[in-house]
Computed example of a mutant assay.
Amino acid sequence: MVTKAPETRIVDSYRIACDGGEGALGHPRVWLSIPPATGFVECPYCDCKYIHHAFKDKLSAA
């Protein structure tokens, strides 16, 4: 069995909501704040990584 890698999304806002994106199979909606110093945040439920567009070239290869 192979585990899928967590998803990475580029966003325009420093405050975002994540609900797992799978309707009833997702998770409770949580609001996450991207720290301006790091440029990214990970969802504590689904491990999706949200990268602010200003940091995409710096972090997408990491």
Rank of each mutant, 00 (worst) to 15 (best):
T8F: 12
A5Y: 07
L25H: 12
K49E: 08
A61G: 15
T8A: 09
I16F: 09
T3D: 10
C18H: 00
P44I: 04
C46I: 12
K58C: 03
R9I: 12
R29A: 08
R29E: 08
H27R: 07
W31H: 09
P36L: 10
A62W: 11
Y45P: 01
H52L: 09
E42D: 12
P36D: 07
C48Q: 04
R15K: 09
Y50G: 00
T3G: 14
S60T: 11
K49A: 13
R9F: 07
F40G: 04
G21N: 01
P28G: 02
A62S: 08
A54V: 07
T3E: 09
S33I: 10
A61Q: 15
I34T: 01
G39P: 00
L32M: 15
H27V: 03
K49G: 13
V30T: 13
H52K: 02
V41C: 08
G20D: 02
V30W: 05
L25Y: 12
A61D: 14
Y14T: 01
A54H: 11
A37F: 07
S60M: 13
Y50C: 06
C48D: 13
I16W: 01
K58Y: 03
V30F: 03
E42Q: 15
Y50N: 06
P6G: 09
E7V: 11
P36S: 14
P36Q: 00
A61H: 15
Y45F: 12
I34H: 01
P36Y: 01
G20N: 08
S13T: 04
A61I: 15
I10G: 03
G39V: 06
G39K: 04
D57K: 06
S33W: 05
R9N: 07
P28R: 08
V2C: 14
P36E: 02
I16V: 15
K58L: 05
H27K: 00
L59M: 13
A54G: 03
P28M: 06
C46Q: 04
F40I: 04
Y50S: 10
F55E: 00
F55T: 03
L25G: 05
D57R: 10
G39N: 13
F40H: 10
M1G: 12
A17C: 11
I34Q: 05
G39Q: 02
S60N: 14
A62K: 15
L59F: 13
P6T: 05
E7W: 10
S13M: 08
T38G: 03
H53E: 09
K56Y: 11
S33M: 06
I51S: 00
E7D: 10
A17V: 06
S60R: 15
G20M: 02
A17F: 06
P28F: 04
P36V: 02
G21D: 03
H53R: 15
Y14W: 14
I51T: 06
K4W: 04
E42C: 15
S33K: 05
K49F: 11
K4T: 14
L25R: 09
G23Q: 02
P28H: 04
D12C: 06
E7A: 14
W31C: 04
V30Q: 00
R9D: 01
S60W: 10
M1E: 15
G20R: 05
A5E: 15
S33C: 08
A62L: 15
R15T: 09
D19V: 05
I51W: 03
R9P: 01
A62I: 13
C46Y: 00
K56F: 09
A24I: 06
G21P: 02
